[in-house]
Structure formats: structure tokens, C-alpha cells
């Protein structure tokens, strides 16, 4: 096991897959000569050259469509959209071309692309550089959506996404690239479907993904130490499809659920998870499930307002205490 940073895990997955298969390429803004905004493609340009590590113009719709078109012929592009806020410009190609081509061609063409993009509120980046948009991607037929909460997942999910014949959107978070964690020394493929139990517990299920897994883990610690509540943390690394069986199993055991997301609430991961709970295990519930989420505002620049817009572990603790009638 190596203890490496999140960005290093992503870089390693790129490097291994590009070394293995000459049809694996990567493309995006500043990913080559400049080494990548978050260093996720560091050193690849020097190793694989400009034909396979493509510094693109700032044309998200264009280069995303170009990567998708190449994938029709068996190229496996890893397409980095520098910030998920820019992905709106690429969504026509992602949704109308990549996600639908297999279906509308009756299985003749497939788009084995990986889209990687960083989102989330970082530090006062304002309304147009702070979006969380996973909810937009998870409603699209034909597109898989995964998101890693730690370096091991970041490495293993990218490896699997590159090999998978379906288009996969990987949601990353700007604040997580320097997070450290254990990654297996040998090749490792993380499943693209399912969920992980990040912490076992018995009294309440805390469901999170990406950065909110860490709020849930921190909340679980506080709940255990200060309130004697045993929380189970479920890591929903696959947002599409969501792990119905895993959600049902944990909530049926604990009978209570809190869903934490950095995205805004309307039509979000929380809405969808609660719908699944209703469909799968409504009569196992001892209390109505609760959502923890961001305020529905364009992200404010001001530091205090920004903090007020985004939830954290304290909001998860409060939600749990409310569930238990302790708040």
C-alpha cells in the first residue's frame, strides 16, 4: 500500500492505462505541457507526446465532441473538463452524442469515453466556478456517473471507467486533490456499481458521496463519542446507477437515514435516495429520512455567505439529533 494523494492516484491510473493501450488518450485544457490544473495528468505529455496527451483550445463543446467521435472507432479518450461549471458547454455532446449513440444506433456504435471534471465550492470562487452538478448527469440514460471519496477509489474507479465500454462521468472535487490515502501497490479495479460501507453502525445510516462522505464520517465520530449514537456511513461512489440493494440493506438495519450532499436540494441525490428508500424499505423506517444539502443560491463570493450556503459535518450531526428527538 502506498500513501498517495488523490491527484497522484488519478495520474497513476492514466499512466498505467496509457502504457497498456495505445488507444487510451487524454485531452483537455492545460493538461499537457502545463501538467494539468490539478496535476492529474502530470508528466504524461513528456511520456506519451502531443498526439495522445492533447492540450485543447478552450472549446469544451468542440473537444468533448471530438473525443466522443474518436471513441466511436475504439479510441478511449479521458476527457478532462477543467471545471464542471464549463461542462454545460459540453453537455450537448455528452448527452446527445455519447450517452445516446448506442441506443439510437441499435447497438452498432458505442462511446467508451471517460469525462472527468472538478466541481464543488472551493474557496470563494463565486457563482460560475463553484457549481455541483452531479444531479444533472445522473438523470441521463446511457451515462454512468461515479465519484470517489478517497485516493483508492479515485484510482480504481478511473481504471474501471477507462476499460468500460459505456461512457462514464467522473465527478471530482476541487478541495480533495491533495487528500492522502492508501492505494494498493498492484493494479486495482474499483467496481463502477454498488456502494461501500465506510463505517459500520447500527442506529442510523448516513449516506454521502465524494466530499460529503467525510462530513458523514466526522459526524459519525461525534455522534458516537458525544451522544452514544452508532452511525453507519454508506459511500455512494456510484451515483448512476444508485445502489438500491445497498441503500435498502443499511436502512433496513438502522431504520433511520440522513442523506448529505453538497449539491442543492431540489432534484438532487437526496431526493433520489429518499425515493429509493420509499420504494425499497418504507416500512422499515422509524422516522422520515432527512436531507442535508446546500442552499439554492448561486454560490456567493463573500466568505461568510459562502459558508452559510454549504453544509458540513455539523449539519449532519444536527439532522441526526433531530431524527432522535434530541434537538
Amino acid at each position: 500500500m502506498a500513501n498517495i494523494m488523490y491527484w497522484e492516484a488519478i495520474q497513476r491510473a492514466h499512466d498505467e492505462e496509457m502504457a497498456r493501450d495505445p488507444m487510451v488518450i487524454c485531452m483537455g485544457e492545460d493538461i499537457g505541457v502545463a501538467g494539468g490544473t490539478y496535476k492529474a495528468t502530470k508528466g504524461l505529455y513528456e511520456k506519451y507526446g502531443p498526439l495522445r496527451v492533447m492540450d485543447t483550445p478552450i472549446s469544451e463543446g468542440g473537444f468533448t465532441g471530438l473525443g466522443i467521435g474518436a471513441s466511436f472507432l475504439g479510441v478511449r479518450p479521458i476527457i478532462e473538463i477543467m471545471s464542471v461549471n464549463f461542462a454545460w458547454l459540453a453537455m450537448d455532446q455528452m448527452f446527445n452524442s455519447a450517452a445516446k449513440v448506442r441506443y439510437m444506433s441499435g447497438g452498432q456504435l458505442t462511446a467508451p469515453c471517460v469525462f472527468r471534471s472538478a466541481g464543488g465550492a472551493a474557496h470563494q470562487l463565486g457563482a460560475q466556478h463553484s457549481a455541483r452538478m452531479e444531479k444533472v448527469f445522473m438523470g441521463i440514460a446511457g451515462l454512468r456517473v461515479v465519484t470517489a471519496s478517497n485516493p483508492k477509489q479515485a484510482y480504481g474507479l478511473l481504471k474501471s471507467a477507462i476499460r468500460c465500454d459505456d461512457p462514464v462521468f467522473i465527478n471530482e472535487h476541487e478541495l480533495m486533490y491533495n487528500m492522502k490515502g492508501e492505494v494498493p501497490d498492484g493494479e486495482y479495479f474499483h467496481p463502477l456499481e454498488g456502494s461501500d460501507i465506510a463505517r459500520a453502525g447500527t442506529d442510523v445510516t448516513l449516506l454521502g458521496y465524494n466530499i460529503s462522505v467525510h462530513w458523514c464520517l466526522k459526524a459519525a465520530e461525534i455522534l458516537d463519542k458525544q451522544y452514544g449514537i452508532s452511525a453507519e456511513v454508506v459511500d455512494l461512489y456510484s451515483l448512476s446507477p444508485l445502489d438500491r440493494a445497498g441503500i435498502k440493506k443499511s436502512v433496513s438495519k438502522t431504520h433511520r437515514a440522513v442523506i448529505a450532499e453538497e449539491d442543492e436540494a431540489p432534484v438532487g441525490v437526496g431526493s433520489e435516495v429518499i425515493a429509493i428508500i420509499n420504494e425499497e424499505c418504507f416500512f422499515e423506517l422509524d422516522a422520515a429520512p432527512v436531507r442535508v444539502h446546500s442552499a439554492l443560491v448561486p454560490q456567493p463570493y463573500n466568505h461568510t455567505l459562502e459558508k452559510a450556503a454549504i453544509p458540513d459535518h455539523e449539519d449532519v450531526v444536527k439532522a441526526v439529533l433531530k431524527l432522535f428527538g434530541k434537538a
Binding site: 465532441g65 471530438l66 467521435g69 474518436a70 479510441v75
Partner: peptide, 9 residues
């Protein structure tokens, strides 16, 4: 862009 991508391949 799909055509350009096919050409890239």
C-alpha cells in the same frame, strides 16, 4: 466535432 474525432482516430 464527432467528424473531427473520427478523423483523430
Amino acid at each position: 466535432p464527432l467528424a473531427a474525432g473520427i478523423a483523430k482516430a
